[in-house]
Design a protein around this nucleic acid. Structure first.
Ligand SMILES: NC(=O)c1ccc[n+]([C@@H]2O[C@H](COP(=O)([O-])OP(=O)(O)OC[C@H]3O[C@@H](n4cnc5c(N)ncnc54)[C@H](O)[C@@H]3O)[C@@H](O)[C@H]2O)c1
Ligand SMILES: NC(=O)c1ccc[n+]([C@@H]2O[C@H](COP(=O)([O-])OP(=O)(O)OC[C@H]3O[C@@H](n4cnc5c(N)ncnc54)[C@H](O)[C@@H]3O)[C@@H](O)[C@H]2O)c1
Lengths: 229, 229
DNA sequence: ACGACTTTGTTCAGGCGTTCACAAGCGGTT
DNA sequence: AACCGCTTGTGAACGCCTGAACAAAGTCGT
């Protein structure tokens, strides 16, 4: 019996749970049987108290005085994040980035399997990438229907991303991961997550510039120093 | 006159400013002279009031009753995010993902230029990617010194990411973008941003499961999806 | 068997970020 | 010149998330 889930899980917590799960998988492969919240938090790059709070959304999973069972917690997280069942994904736009994703083994190990690769370029269609043939994008609807794909990944040029998204939604895909630098508009009930690499670089550049305005880190051994900021 | 920044800009705002900047660049190309906060917010996928608040960190940039000057706001954002000067970047790990990044034109147009591509694989070294030759990773330190690279992008396997990061930090790189699925440890004063594609898929899977199961719901989420920290 | 130590789970307060709502300012119109 | 409508900019409330301190609970050692 699935006992009640009294609390709702914040999305920020969900993202971290996925990180914990990956760390735990590595620990399990290494033969570890137990971990403490401190060690796990360190490996995940978060605060130990925050980690315990995150895990508490799943109910008590640890043993006081001992820590968490690696295998037990891994299974529990796996279950909480959607079980072990394979999630079929379609990938649209098999260019440089799309090819890299299609060829990446790290997704399959987490239950995400590409079942359809689609492109509009005749030169790309027919090529095999990651063991799967690239099919013409005209077959998008039939591929989704055949494979019951649950997730659509968009790596097309930005100009066509919205139209590709609309077609995915129209055939029932309700989860979309978008790499194109545009904000997609979708009806309620469809989730979109966007990965914007240019923004990441721009944020880094901003933080760097901001740092130059402040005399930061080289610790002044001599105490006194005047101007801060 | 670097004084005119009395207020600090939240990091979440900085990420959105970068998005606004891209939208504005497109609008400027289209010949538009003015935009309202509502239209801009719609194109960026955010709330109009939030957009105005974001822009207010830069001081008044608009004209009441009219809107924002496209070119003027674009220039102001460009300046706030670090100016137009080119930012030299080094990329370590020229595999599938690294090659896609090195070959991507969208970064250069925003001032990010790859000045060094490094890999350890003899088969990769010497290859030209995006007009640049791949050099042996042993030359990392000298490449950074020569090019004064400000940003390091890590697309190596996870096992070696920390050691690559350490080497980057040791030669003065203080901004790092990490694609490997590990939490990097860095000294204070170094910024790391992590892009974790598996986590994005896992969050989508979780949200989908929540939707299918009992409607004890997801938490009210933070609409924007910046990036992992 | 008992005590002390370790580690979890929870509670509390604080900081950020987002949102709504409204007043101020500007252009256009009469 | 004055009015009207439109849009910006901002002040304040609300809610979420983070970080820290505390109590419960279980284990290990004696
Ligand atoms: N490559 C990167 O490092 C990178 C970085 C950041 C963002 N992006 C974004 O990711 C997207 C893809 O980038 P890329 O470098 O792989 O570009 P790319 O040009 O190499 O690949 C795009 C692919 O999409 C295909 N395509 C075009 N129209 C299509 C349609 N209507 N239906 C299906 N497929 C279509 C093209 O044939 C091509 O194969 C772009 O939006 C880009 O802005 C890429
Ligand atoms: N490809 C993807 O779609 C994808 C998705 C998510 C995460 N990632 C992560 O990005 C990273 C790269 O992925 P990939 O698919 O490009 O892998 P890849 O194996 O194709 O490329 C890795 C490259 O790094 C090089 N390398 C290995 N050790 C090195 C070292 N010490 N110094 C410099 N270079 C070294 C290898 O020679 C290889 O060329 C991995 O950590 C992976 O987990 C990739």
């Amino acid at each position: 019996m699935p006992q009640s889930r009294p609390r709702i899980i914040p999305e920020a917590t969900v993202a971290r749970l996925a990180v914990y799960l990956r760390v735990l998988a590595g620990l399990a492969d290494g033969g570890r049987s137990h971990v403490s919240s401190g060690e796990l938090a360190s490996a995940a790059g978060v605060n130990p108290a925050g980690l315990r709070k995150d895990l508490s959304y799943l109910g008590p999973c640890g043993v006081r005085g001992v820590g968490y069972s690696v295998a037990g917690l891994r299974d529990r997280l796996t279950d909480a994040l959607g079980g072990e069942r394979s999630r079929p994904c379609v990938l649209i736009g098999i260019g440089r980035l799309g090819s890299a994703l299609a060829d990446y083994a790290g997704f399959a190990s987490r239950g995400f399997e590409f079942v359809g690769l689609l492109d509009t370029d005749p030169a790309a269609v027919g090529r095999r990438v990651g063991g799967l043939p690239v099919r013409p994008v005209a077959e998008l609807e039939s591929v989704v229907a055949e494979t019951q794909a649950a997730i659509g990944v968009i790596t097309t040029p930005a100009e066509v991303a919205q139209s590709v998204c609309d077609r995915l939604v129209s055939v029932g895909v309700r989860s979309i991961l978008n790499f194109a630098p545009v904000a997609l508009t979708v009806p309620a009930g469809v989730d979109v997550r966007k990965v914007d690499l240019s923004v990441e670089l721009q944020v880094l550049a901003f933080l760097d510039q901001q740092r130059h305005g402040t005399p930061p880190l080289v610790a002044p051994l001599r105490a006194a120093q005047g101007s801060a900021r």
